[in-house]
């Protein structure tokens, strides 16, 4: 693995694959969470399935964790290597003349998303692991909706989520089409991929923001 990833293009490819995997995961995550807006029962059923199905718990969840960790670690590795490729900095460097802010600051939007993700894990994932595997409390298929509502009661958390998802949107605005370019997909369909990426980068974060605001105003 380390031999394969010693090449710059292989690193790009691996980074893009993990990004595409996470882009797909976000669709599933939003699809499940959005049910909480219109059906408490459906959200509980889906959450119960996700939380108890052995395939999800012991196959998909570890793959997701590895994907998330890999994407962040590889992002840092690339950033360090890229910084070292210019040992003397320009006195005057006008990046805005030839590239977007999002594309030049992926590491910073990525760091902000990482900070949010740690809070998100403490908020949801850690209590869930504690409930099921440490305290081993009896399973209650109707607890999920109330747990979700409870989390979005404090205003500070809702504000934090809104900021985090705006940054995720900015990260995706470059990352979506960049992942396709890295795997070598640049052809007559590229303008469609770019348009799809823009819509995805707006709609997916907007969906998560809507869910947070909905539960804050409706608890």
């Amino acid at each position: 693995m380390s031999g394969f990833l010693s090449s710059s293009i292989a690193r790009k490819f691996a980074m893009a694959l993990s990004a595409l995997f996470l882009i797909f995961f976000l669709i599933i995550h939003l699809a499940v969470n959005i049910t909480s807006v219109f059906s408490e029962d459906l959200f509980n059923q889906l959450s119960h399935f996700m939380g108890t199905n052995p395939m999800v718990q012991f196959a998909l969840q570890p793959v997701l964790l590895v994907g998330v960790i890999f994407h962040f670690v590889m992002g840092f590795v690339l950033e360090i290597r890229n910084k070292s490729a210019r040992d003397v900095k320009y006195v005057n460097y006008k990046g805005s003349a030839n590239s977007s802010w999002m594309s030049r600051n992926m590491i910073y939007s990525g760091l902000a998303i990482l900070a949010f993700l740690l809070i998100h894990f403490i908020d949801f994932w850690a209590p869930e692991m504690n409930y099921k595997y440490i305290e081993a409390l009896p399973e209650n298929p109707t607890r999920y909706y109330h747990e979700l509502q409870e989390k979005f009661m404090p205003l500070w958390r809702v504000v934090l989520y809104v900021i985090a998802f705006v940054l995720l949107g900015l990260h995706l605005l470059h990352g979506f089409q960049s992942a396709f370019q890295s795997i070598g997909f640049n052809n007559k369909y590229t303008s469609f991929v770019k348009a799809l990426g823009k819509w995805y980068s707006i709609l997916i974060p907007a969906g998560f923001i809507f869910i947070a605001l909905f539960h804050y105003f409706n608890h």
Binding site: S8, K12, L78, R81, A85, G95, S100, S103, S178, S182
Partner: peptide
Amino acid sequence: MDEEGFGNCTNTGA
């Protein structure tokens, strides 16, 4: 290219 110490492309398009 890698041995020469160039950085990795991040598709900024600059």
